[in-house]
Amino acid sequence: MLTRLKKLHWPLAALLLPALSAVAQAPEAAPAKAAEPNAQILLFWFLLATLGLVLMVFLLLFVLIVVKMKPQLRKLYELPTVHESWSGKVIGLLIGDTRLVTGEHKDELMGHDYDGITEYDNDLPPWWKYGFYFTIVFAVAYMGYYHVANAGQLQAAEYETEMQQATLLVSADADDPNKLTTYTALLSPADLSEGKTIYTTNCAPCHGANAEGKVGPNLTDEYWLHGGEINHVYKTIKFGVTGKGMVAWKGKLAGKQILQVASYIQSLQGSKPANAKEPQGEKEAPGKPVAAK
């Protein structure tokens, strides 16, 4: 028998070798495509809804059982050995006795009498005491977790983390309203002339022909609502101010045109036009930018 097995060994090996080689050369199975985020969200809400439905069914069954067994529970509750026990109070709560939650009211005066005001010898309601005990446990756990073990972030650190995460979601290109530009004011007569033309066409109806202020604020004094430094003015013109009537000129004016009109506005500082509108905003020293509000 052993001899026959030895004789069959090489033919079997010859037959299996190509199959094993094919298996070895076969490409690895492509990993399963990760579930789409929307599919994961739908699955999560489906499981949550299913769990809620199951809990509602169990609650309904529990209520039906209590209603059916109410006579038996009442007899059990009336037994002297059960009535005053903690489990007896739980049974009493199921059949309508709220002592477990509200406590017992004793008509026993403590002997205190002040201007006709007397005091009964009643304990605090159990619901209040249980709540107070819970706050003690919570405070100890909170102190240990946040201040002793330093396992969690405090409010300031959590705020900083959220702000860092938020910056990752904001683009860093020129169209980012949260990123201030680093331009310098244009001083050439050609740029200021072009800025004046743009201002007269687009800005004068609200700010006045000489920037003295009409519907919009006066642009010639030292007071600014959103910063008077060239890059703050540029940002205000480009992105506007939502809710205050200042429209965004992004898409209507090119970047250089916005810088030209911003430079022209800065050139009007201290011009003191007639009928200038009263100051608005915060006073800004020349050359010191004010953070936009």
Rank of each mutant, 00 (worst) to 15 (best):
R4Q: 13
L5N: 08
K6W: 10
K7C: 01
P11C: 04
A14I: 06
L17F: 13
A19I: 11
A26I: 04
A39I: 07
L43I: 04
L48M: 11
L53I: 15
L61E: 12
K70C: 12
P71V: 07
P71D: 08
V82R: 11
H83D: 09
E84A: 06
S85L: 08
S85E: 09
K89I: 09
I91G: 03
I95R: 07
L100G: 04
T102A: 12
E104S: 12
E104L: 13
L109F: 13
Y114C: 02
D115Q: 08
I117L: 11
E119H: 08
E119Q: 07
Y120W: 05
D123M: 02
L124C: 00
P125Y: 00
K129D: 00
G131Q: 00
T135Y: 03
V140A: 04
Y142T: 00
Y145H: 13
Y146C: 06
G152V: 08
S171L: 09
D176A: 15
P177C: 15
T184I: 06
P189E: 05
T200M: 13
H207A: 08
A211W: 06
E212D: 11
G213W: 08
L219P: 10
Y223S: 02
L225G: 04
G227A: 04
K235R: 15
W249Y: 10
K252M: 14
I258S: 10
L259H: 01
L259G: 00
A262F: 03
S263D: 02
Y264L: 03
Y264C: 03
S271C: 00
K272T: 07
A274L: 07
P279N: 02
E282Y: 08
P289K: 11
A291R: 15
